[in-house]
């Protein structure tokens, strides 16, 4: 088992948001987490990544058998957890090349590997750019600075391709994307899918799932996963809307 979340409770400033989440993810799987706004989808992603503003008040998260709460944010990342941000932050003056090189080398150091020589690193950048079909000159610009919404999301996918995570969590990576950008994001995920990694795709809409076909779909509502099923559940949700879930819960 890659990720095992048991009865997870978490909140912010004393306000509980996750109220007993259970989720199991195996290698080779793609999970979609859906649900209305404000039900805790992004909180779940942040808590797995270790964001300190959130307090875990109960339950456990095991990743490759390790208790994640004992790992720092950066160590979780170095162990192969990647979070694709809903709102990627700008870091003025820091080129994506420099940013990625620092990240790749710190991860390599953690694994006891030597630094990647500059030439090799640049070749890797080019190759991954091609893989995720990014043609624009994103890599020489400062991290997310002045990027359009679509460019920011493509940049997240590019970074994912560079870091080759074991568990990638994409937090509403599809929101605000036009159809071309959506396709690039989805293609990126599909190209990186392997039997030894897994994806958790958080989305509000079904349309991303036309391009990324999930093995499992979960509905998060009021801090709990209230329904799980196969990819057909997404279609059902699209058809009936979330009101159906809300009614069921009442």
């Amino acid at each position: 088992m890659l990720l095992s979340i048991k009865n997870l409770h978490a909140g912010i400033n004393g306000k509980e948001i996750l109220r007993g989440v259970n989720l199991e993810v195996n290698k080779g799987e793609v999970h979609a987490i859906m649900g209305p706004n404000g039900t805790g989808k992004s909180t779940l992603a942040s808590v797995i990544a270790g964001r300190e503003v959130f307090d875990v008040t109960g339950g456990e998260i095991l990743y490759q058998g390790k208790d994640l709460q004992k790992l720092s944010i950066e160590d979780r990342a170095r162990e192969g957890i990647f979070l694709g941000f809903q709102y990627p932050v700008e870091i003025p003056g820091v080129s994506i090349t420099n940013f990625m090189r620092t990240a790749v080398n710190e991860i390599r150091k953690f694994k006891g590997l030597d630094q990647l020589p500059a030439g090799e690193f640049l070749r890797m950048m080019e190759e991954r750019k091609r893989l995720v079909e990014i043609t624009s000159n994103l890599t020489n610009r400062s991290v997310n600075e002045g990027f359009s919404g679509g460019e920011k999301k493509k940049n997240e996918i590019f970074q994912m391709a560079m870091l080759e995570p074991t568990l990638a969590i994409l937090d509403e990576t599809d929101s605000g994307l036009d159809i071309d950008a959506l396709r690039i994001v989805a293609n990126g995920v599909n190209k990186l899918r392997r039997p030894d990694n897994a994806f958790v795709v958080i989305t509000h809409y079904q349309r991303l799932l036309d391009y990324i076909v999930p093995d499992f779909v979960h509905v998060l509502f009021q801090g709990k996963i209230v329904k799980s099923g196969g990819k057909e559940l997404a279609l059902e949700l699209e058809e009936k809307g979330y009101d159906w879930i809300k009614k069921e819960q009442e």
């Binding site: 990544a49 964001r51 300190e52 720092s72 944010i73 950066e74 979780r76 990342a77 170095r78 990647f82 979070l83 941000f85 990627p88 932050v89 870091i91 003025p92 003056g93 820091v94 420099n98 940013f99 990625m100 620092t102 990240a103 710190e106 991860i107 953690f110 400062s142 970074q159 870091l163």
Partner: peptide, 23 residues
Amino acid sequence: FYCQQRGISAESAIGLIVNGYAK
């Protein structure tokens, strides 16, 4: 958080951000 989530330590992150700011 963004930097750390990419595996960059807080110290390196501050170094990166400050150098970017002063670029």
